[in-house]
């Protein structure tokens, strides 16, 4: 693959700096104006749409902090070119539950002690929701593999696994009653 380097650093013309598009985020259409073509979805969510809940920590898909759902798939928003996501349904941490009314997964993370500094947490909440949508009763090894794209530096993961297992148990208990 090849690509063109845009104007050299000293040129005053700003090619690719006036992108206009709309993104479908958390069931709302959000306009993006005068964006640079190279902006990632992570950047646009945070800096242009004010959705600061999605975090960036590596900008190369190696930590999972920026995880969002795009058309139902868990992806790293740092690796999605924002302008390429037009027409796709984007779900961020802000779309998981209203402020003050956390989801069962979010409550379990707090209750189980799965949160310390909390920087990786929104991405992990997205990944855990996705896992528990697809797998009602994930085994421990399945939880570990499914969440292995989300690095946490504080917890050593034990309480996070506990939180996911608690939700699994509670959901099944709820479904059986």
């Amino acid at each position: 693959m090849s690509d063109q380097m845009s104007d050299d650093a000293t040129a005053s013309a700003r090619v690719g700096w006036n992108e206009q598009y709309a993104l479908h985020v958390n069931d709302e259409v959000r306009e993006v104006r005068d964006a640079w073509v190279g902006e990632s979805l992570l950047f646009v969510l945070r800096e242009r749409l004010g959705l600061m809940g999605t975090k960036g920590a590596c900008e190369q898909g190696e930590c999972g902090s920026c995880s969002v759902m795009v058309d139902g798939e868990l992806v790293c928003s740092c690796l999605v070119m924002a302008a390429s996501a037009v027409g796709q349904r984007i779900l961020t941490i802000e779309g998981i539950a209203p402020i003050g009314a956390p989801s069962d997964v979010q409550r379990a993370f707090v209750d189980a002690g799965a949160v310390q500094c909390g920087f990786c947490t929104p991405g992990l909440i997205m990944a855990a929701h996705d896992l528990l949508e697809r797998s009602v009763q994930p085994s421990e090894i399945e939880i570990r593999e499914e969440l292995s794209g989300n690095v946490c530096r504080c917890t050593g993961y034990g309480r996070i696994i506990e939180a996911v297992q608690r939700v699994s148990v509670n959901r099944r208990a709820g479904a059986s009653t």
Binding site: M1, S2, M5, S6, Q60
Partner: peptide, 27 residues
Amino acid sequence: DAMVLAGGTDTMVEVNAGHRRPSCVVV
């Protein structure tokens, strides 16, 4: 010479690092 973008998992790493500055992208 457009930049071909599929999953972005290689290409966007380079864009984020400033190693690639796309002017035209085909998704």
